[in-house]
């Protein structure tokens, strides 16, 4: 009995922290979304049913739709451009017998830099006409792209930067996974006369598939929450071309002080992320069973 009380004492700090800063706010998400929230302690918050959701989805429908579409586009472009880069890098670098450590560190380097640093630096690099990239384009005789001033290229620029920043860390995970591919499989394939391309297709990729699936879902979860990059680089522009869900929440919070509507939008993001995480845990559980 005494030891149980002692154990409870060891757990108490964590429980208090979680209760205050995790469990309670999560519960509050479901409450405040249906309230006209009052920060004044003398005045109670008022229940207003679905009014917050009506405001967000119907009254604000233009902006809300744009924010969600942009995030979906960011997710899609992120997969198209960024998802395969670390896989290719991992497989290639794993084969390198020269400068192997150098490659690992060189590609990991951008991941060490703070996101704010990377974003401001790329903002300068993407500066229309005069920035490094457009200047290089003009120098070799190409048309300057303009990057952040065009709606289509602004999003592309953000995805390129995010890939540049993020690929190295993901590559490290793939490199670790590649260490786990049994050497016997390659030996057997080689004895059977399989070419290197066939070995990649029939051994490496299938062996990596579980971790590829996991990292795909993690990447989607991550990109749904994109904020810092567009907030610093484009302020959501041009013409809301890079405006995201979290930026919408930020605006509701600090421009309109409308906590109920901000929470309602947050709850929608919450539900999307929970669905993705449920898929994630189903995938990982099935992988563990298969093992």
């Amino acid at each position: 009995m005494r030891s149980r009380i002692l154990a409870a004492g060891f757990l108490a700090p964590a429980i208090v922290f979680f209760a205050l800063f995790s469990w309670w706010p999560i519960i509050q998400s479901f409450i405040i979304s249906f309230q006209e929230y009052s920060t004044d302690s003398a005045k109670a918050s008022r229940w207003i049913g679905l009014e917050n959701f009506r405001q967000v989805l119907v009254v604000d429908s233009d902006i809300t739709a744009v924010a969600w579409m942009n995030v979906l586009l960011f997710v899609a472009l992120g997969i198209l451009i960024g998802y395969f880069v670390p896989i290719v890098l991992g497989i290639a670098i794993n084969e390198m017998r020269h400068a192997n450590s150098f490659f690992r560190i060189a590609y990991y380097l951008p991941a060490i830099l703070p996101m704010v640093v990377v974003t401001i630096m790329w903002k300068y690099i993407f500066t229309p006409e005069e920035g490094l990239l457009d200047a290089l384009f003009r120098w070799v005789g190409l048309q300057p792209v303009g990057w952040l001033i065009n709606k289509s290229t602004a999003m592309l620029g953000l995805v390129i930067m995010a890939t540049w920043k993020g690929a190295g860390a993901t590559m490290i995970i793939y490199l670790a996974a590649l260490q786990g591919v049994p050497a016997e499989l390659y030996e057997a394939a080689e004895l059977d006369g399989a070419s290197i391309r066939q070995r990649i297709r029939h051994i490496t990729i299938p062996q990596l598939l579980p971790i590829m699936l996991v990292l795909l879902i993690l990447q989607i979860i991550g990109t749904f929450q994109v904020f810092t990059e567009p907030f610093i680089m484009t302020k959501g522009g041009p013409a809301r071309g890079t405006y995201t869900v979290l930026m919408y929440i930020y605006d509701k919070l600090f421009r309109e002080y409308n906590y109920g509507q901000a929470t309602a939008m947050g709850l929608m993001l919450f539900l999307v992320l929970v669905i993705l995480t449920v898929i994630y845990s189903l995938v990982t559980r099935r992988q563990e069973q298969n093992r």
Binding site: W24, P25, Q28, S29, I32, Y37, A262, G266
Partner: peptide, 10 residues
């Protein structure tokens, strides 16, 4: 980020 606003209010 999913419960950013309620955490902010908490």
């Amino acid at each position: 980020q999913a419960y950013l606003v309620p955490l902010f209010l908490t």
